[in-house]
Design a protein around this nucleic acid. Sequence first.
DNA 1: ATGCTACTTTATAATGATTCTAAAAAAAGT
DNA 2: ACTTTTTTTAGAATCATTATAAAGTAGCAT
Lengths: 137, 137
Amino acid sequence: MNSVSNFVEKLRNSGLRPTKQRIKICEVLFNTDKTFHFTINELSKIISEKIEEKISLATIYNTVHAFKREGYLKEITINSDKSYFDTNTSHHHHFFDNLTKELTDLNDEDVEKIQIKKSLPGKKISSVEILVKVENE
Amino acid sequence: MNSVSNFVEKLRNSGLRPTKQRIKICEVLFNTDKTFHFTINELSKIISEKIEEKISLATIYNTVHAFKREGYLKEITINSDKSYFDTNTSHHHHFFDNLTKELTDLNDEDVEKIQIKKSLPGKKISSVEILVKVENE
DNA sequence: ATGCTACTTTATAATGATTCTAAAAAAAGT
DNA sequence: ACTTTTTTTAGAATCATTATAAAGTAGCAT
């Protein structure tokens, strides 16, 4: 399933050659049973911890953005100063705890179907994203 | 209605002394019949165009953030390369056109009531924001 | 009004995330 | 193997935002 050949395919689909560094990035991103959220800096830290090698930030940025373009990663819209990414690419929403900065998935089926009763002339909806901000009770 | 005394009140409520610069910022922000969206840079440009005076960026940042803290402005969650603000502080959502970067209000009554069927232990919902991304038909 | 104190403004520097660059390294093609 | 193209990398550049510290202003007590 999530083996090197799968990573090579993902990379080729994204228009990227399967290099050593990119395969390593794939291992961190996709070789898990659970999906997860990350910032580029967190990803960089995970890579340097889990893997002895150092991959330059520029390479991480390039690879993550190529995967996002291809749909293997989603970028999450948080009211913030940095970008969050999600390895869960299915359609879903998020909880965000502004205190802990923690992101939690909110599955599509956990939200009553949303009906948008307004439309913009000449435009069609490409996505509907809900961000539920939470605080301590 | 939206006169200097009203601005002075807004400023005092926000814990700010009513200075010349802050009154000018209020005029641009609140002395209109329509609400609008802006980035700090756009606001800065509007100020230097509409008003002969130059107000430093630091002052604009400080004032906008104080108003946000006090609830006279809302910050909108968009692609996180810069912050967008809204002078419409009523509860509502947004359309965002990624091509034109245009933001449009989506009133609360234009969205079928949202039911979140999941909750996080020890947390309560503080806000639910919908961002509808649109593209050309 | 005058003077004192605390708050503001301002230009500029600092920061932090992201993007760019150009040279060295690696991969692909011949 | 040799040449060409792509990639990696460290460091520089950029952009939004925040911090700083000196000079200016508001508020208050006299």
